Simulated scan of single mutants.
Amino acid sequence: MSIELDAVSKSFGPVEAIRNISLTIGQGEMFGLIGHNGAGKSTLFKLMLGLLPASAGAVRINGVATSSAQFRQVRRHIGYLPESFVSYDNLSGLEVLHLFADLKRVPRAECGRVLRRVGLADACGRRLHTYSKGMRQRLGFAQVLLGDPELIFLDEPTNGLDPEGIADFYSILREAQQRGATIVITSHILAEIQDRVDRLVILDAGKVAALGTLAELRARQVLPSHIEAQLLPGCGERAGAALAHLAGLTIIVDGDRASIACAAAQKAPVLAALAPMLVDVTIREPSLEDLFLGYGGQHARAH
């Protein structure tokens, strides 16, 4: 399923939570939505889910406006995991999933398959009040997977999951994406999503601060690459002299180690100059967190 937002705004009284946002998310994309607290992420999620009406503009899923009567049929093909998954503590995991299966008009027989896939098969008979936070999150993810939705919305989905659980979660998402599902995901753990999303949008005060692939955002922001070089013994001064002809570098030499901050286009000349004296080298590109702080400005830093 594709998503189209056309000049969408949403106000709550005098507060404009979403301001004239236009963007398109293509079928099969894994799309990241990030921003500081209060940037408008949750409001945008609810607009795309049809849970809130837009104050201006239009939201369309597969060409169907979320404000139309026809959207009810589209919604049956959408899976949604809110930031905090809450259900009935006196029910077992399987009973909770049966409830969601009935609501989604999915055969209850499918519940066992998704419980196995999220690693809850052995705990499905236990009451929810015995579940850990991570287990509850896995159960929430299981209800998302019921019916093989064509569009999946995930709000901070890895809360409470351990590293193994996070890796398994993204493995399941890739399986869904490979069968054609579109996935919209928001997370405060930027390092976790930066190499997993195809494109992303950075929201700032309800507006689009940046939109594109990670590579495109890096190119626009012009943040430096960082090179950490381990040099042959006694080559510190020689390294500084070898780099002297390159303008715009920030160089720190400490004994047999050199740290260089440079533009992306300068990485090759720097490495060529240092090659005769290199023992080891590490290159760090600007992270999504670096980009977020750059694009988010003072709002991001305040949070």
Rank of each mutant, 00 (worst) to 15 (best):
L211Y: 12
K104S: 10
L274S: 07
L52Y: 15
P286R: 10
L44D: 00
V86D: 10
L190K: 09
F71P: 02
C111E: 02
G50D: 11
T186I: 02
A191F: 03
Q27K: 14
T186D: 14
L249E: 06
D198Q: 14
H303K: 11
N20R: 11
F100L: 07
A265I: 09
S67K: 10
S9M: 08
S225K: 10
L161R: 04
R136Y: 05
Q177L: 08
D195V: 07
E175L: 10
P82N: 07
R113K: 14
A209S: 14
G38Y: 03
Q27S: 13
F153Y: 13
P82Y: 02
F71C: 06
R196Q: 13
D168Y: 04
A229V: 13
G38A: 09
F85P: 01
D89K: 09
L97A: 03
Q194H: 08
G234H: 12
Q178H: 13
A101V: 09
D290T: 05
T250Y: 09
G255C: 12
M135I: 07
F169H: 01
I260W: 09
A39P: 08
A263L: 12
A241P: 01
R284K: 15
E156A: 11
N159L: 11
R301L: 12
G28N: 05
A17D: 05
L81M: 12
A219E: 15
A101D: 10
Q27V: 04
S225C: 13
K207I: 01
D155L: 03
T182P: 05
E29F: 05
R179N: 05
N37Q: 12
M135V: 06
S84Q: 14
D256L: 04
D280W: 07
L146N: 02
Q298D: 14
A268Q: 15
S187F: 01
A101K: 07
R218W: 08
G35A: 11
P276H: 09
E150M: 09
A265K: 13
I189A: 14
G236C: 08
A302W: 01
M135P: 02
S84I: 12
Y131K: 04
E4C: 08
L173N: 01
M48V: 02
I61Y: 02
A191I: 04
L33A: 08
L274M: 11
L33W: 01
K46Q: 12
R196P: 03
I166F: 00
E228F: 12
G147H: 02
R136E: 06
G212D: 07
P224K: 08
L146H: 01
D198A: 07
L91Y: 13
V184H: 00
T43E: 07
E83W: 01
A109T: 15
A54M: 04
I25Q: 03
D162L: 06
M48S: 03
A69P: 10
Q177D: 08
L94S: 08
V59T: 07
V15T: 14
L151H: 03
Y170N: 07
E150F: 00
P276V: 10
L5K: 02
E150W: 00
D280C: 06
S2H: 13
K46P: 00
P163F: 04
R179F: 03
I251K: 06
L288H: 04
K133R: 15
L33F: 08
Q73E: 15
G26V: 05
S55W: 08
R220K: 14
Q230R: 14
